[in-house]
Design a binder for these strands. Structure first.
Length: 505
RNA sequence: GGGCCGUUAGCUCAGUCGGUAGAGCAGUUGGCUUUUAACCAAUUGGUCGAGCGUUCAAGUCGCUCACGGCCCA
């Protein structure tokens, strides 16, 4: 590389270096010359949230009568300098605490030559005593204060914050620094996942991890991502679901298992879809889909009560009641309910059902059977109207290749999907444990794949062999964690509940 | 994939009929010992997303593209 090119590269790299950054780099340079500019010898003994909880109610006099020494650290979000004294807002993981800094409490010259030159965004540490200002704000009256990490780039507007959606997603750390709502959302997400985990572990479920890279991507109908293993010289797929592995574990005698982890589907991005997303799947032997509907209902109600603290869940302009028993109806009942002009006899007749679909502008393929046509009608006319928590049951066997047939009506399976706010949140069913039936269903999927449906399933012979060893009667379910978190955090887009959503480029 | 909207200083945003680029915050300098978006005074800062076109003249009009947002498939 020639000197000229090196020069050009440097120019390129510093394109976004503005005067603000140059000034901060100068300050850092001065810090380096005065010793270690990045010390890591300070240990705090308390965080802001604890201080407010402990001392928020104490009066100014009480705090002064028995001095309480504390050591705090965090990011300087505001600095109000009034001559010889200043107020600083210090933000840490738990919240904010104000620092009251007086020139004459600090070493000679430190206040004017160091402290006043610090910038918003710098990471600082302070030691002092708990104090209340005349206006009643709990503060730390500072006796010692240090700069721990120089911030070289300016923060977004201190009042308006960061509103640019693109930067909020691409530079999530800025969003987290600036937006309390965003911090809350991700803290809640963590609590929801923990609560689900504890809920199942209390019921003796075993948490497991199964392959993300699979030879045959199974357990759902979706387009997979492909990858390649060099040493083995073989193509692999990123999983679209963990289902078939978890059921192998049930065959192995792990009768209650669950996994919370990422799935990957090679589809477009939208407010509801990210190519990688988090699902929980759980399987319970000697249970059926009715048991899982009961379990789902109590689990979600428990999240509302214990994590959110309210069974009335506000989502955008609506409110859903998680205290009332969740509605349950079959696919056909729901279609008839929302399409009063349609009769059951018409839905059961493939030609008449086709006519209804055509009237609804639903594109049909020749390969579609009656069950698939019914589901198309359901998705077009029912799904988005299922606002309050609702279980829809009796999905056609044709669209449920891994679910157990209903004993009375083998046209449908013992399956449900769960909806809130017009969105599918969960999918569960009594598992198909008849190995020969499973082999036939896979065969039907292979035919659909050959007919051009690239979302159809592969034939998983290894899984059929596992079933041939005998899987106990079992029920299993998957819940989309991202959509669940969207619901409970009132987030309009899946990107708002993913720390680092996929973006172009 | 289609439709609509957006992209201007580090951040948040104005910018009229096409006529020399504006504010607040942040920054810099000075003042100020109880502030809360502190305040007062002065001041620095621009590839107007990229490109092409129309025009004497384009942030502004037209076309193409990139990225984002919302809606639809």
């Amino acid at each position: 590389m020639s000197d000229k090119t090196t020069q050009d590269t440097k120019q390129q790299n510093s394109v976004d270096e503005n005067k603000l950054i140059v000034e901060r780099r100068e300050k850092l340079k001065a810090l380096r010359e005065n010793g270690n500019a990045f010390p890591n010898d300070f240990r705090r003994n308390v965080v802001a949230g604890e201080l407010h909880a402990e001392y928020g109610n104490k009066t100014k006099e009480e705090l002064e009568a028995t001095p309480i020494r504390v050591k705090v650290a965090g990011r300087m979000m505001a600095q109000r300098i009034m001559g010889k004294s200043s107020f600083v807002s210090l933000q840490d993981m738990s919240g904010s605490i104000q620092l009251y800094v007086q020139r004459d409490e600090l070493p000679e010259g430190f206040y004017n030559q160091q402290f006043k030159k610090w910038d918003l965004g710098d990471i600082i540490a302070a030691e002092g005593t708990m104090y209340k200002t005349n206006k009643g704000e709990l503060s730390v009256k500072v006796e010692d204060i240090r700069l721990l990490t120089k911030s070289l780039r300016p923060l977004p507007d201190k009042f308006k914050g960061l509103t640019d959606q693109e930067i909020r997603y691409r530079q999530r750390y800025l969003d987290l620094i600036m937006n309390e709502d965003s911090r809350k959302t991700f803290q809640l997400r963590s609590k929801i996942v923990s609560h689900i985990r504890e809920f199942l572990i209390k019921k003796d479920f075993l948490e497991v991890e199964t392959p993300m890279m699979q030879v045959i991507p199974g357990g759902a109908t979706a387009k997979p991502f492909t990858t390649y293993h060099n040493a083995l010289d073989m193509d692999l797929y990123l999983r679209i679901a963990p289902e078939l592995y978890l059921k192998r574990l049930v065959v192995g005698g792990f009768e209650k298992v669950f996994e919370i982890n990422r799935n990957f589907r090679n589809e477009g991005l939208s407010a509801r879809h990210n190519p990688e997303f988090t699902m929980i799947e759980f399987y319970e032997a000697y249970a059926d889909y009715n048991d899982l509907m009961d379990l789902t209902e109590s689990m979600l109600r428990s999240i509302a009560e214990n994590v959110i603290g309210n069974t009335k869940i506000k989502y955008q302009d609506d409110e859903y009641d998680f205290a009332k028993p969740f509605a349950r109806m079959t696919v056909k009942e729901s279609i008839l309910h929302f399409n009063p002009d349609v009769t059951e006899a018409e839905l059961d007749d493939i030609e008449k059902a086709k006519a209804i679909a055509t009237r609804l502008d639903i594109p049909l393929k020749n390969s579609y059977g009656l069950g698939k046509i019914q589901i198309e009608i359901f998705e077009k006319t029912v799904e988005h109207r299922l606002m309050n928590p609702t279980f829809i049951t009796a999905y056609p066997t044709e669209v449920s290749p891994l679910a157990r047939r209903n004993d009375d009506n083998p046209f449908v399976t013992d399956r449900f999907e769960f909806f809130v706010g017009g969105r599918e949140i969960a999918n569960g069913f009594s598992e198909l444990n008849d190995a020969e039936d499973q082999a036939e269903r896979f065969q039907a999927q292979v035919q659909e794949k050959e007919a051009g449906d690239d979302e159809a399933m592969f034939f998983d012979e290894d899984y059929v062999v596992a079933l041939e060893h005998g899987m106990p009667p079992t029920a299993g379910e998957g819940i989309g964690i991202d959509r669940l978190v969207m619901l409970f955090t009132d987030s309009p887009s899946i990107r708002d509940v993913l720390l680092f959503p996929h973006m172009r480029l």
